[in-house]
């Protein structure tokens, strides 16, 4: 079980944040911040990412 982001690919657009039902993601100046305690690994963020920088494994 894991949520992973490739920070080299990520362009910090926040598309993933906008669809996260748990508000487990936030867009900060430094990049996407993931809260593992809130994340349910639903994978919606992975699907919306325009560059597929996110990988979710259940």
């Amino acid at each position: 079980m894991a949520w992973k982001i490739d920070n080299e690919k990520c362009l910090r657009c926040g598309a993933c944040v906008s669809v996260c039902p748990e508000l487990a993601l936030e867009l900060k100046e430094t990049g996407i911040v993931h809260d593992a305690k809130k994340c349910t690994l639903c994978g919606i963020c992975e699907k919306v990412c325009p560059v597929r920088a996110i990988e979710v494994k259940k």
Binding site: G14, A15, S18, E26, L27, I44, V48, C49, P50, V51
Partner: peptide, 25 residues
Amino acid sequence: GVESTVSRKAGLNTTNKLVNVDSGY
């Protein structure tokens, strides 16, 4: 903006459904 974090912190659910978001590049 699209991430709409502030509203959700205030208690207003603005989460986008996946079907209602286009991925732009």
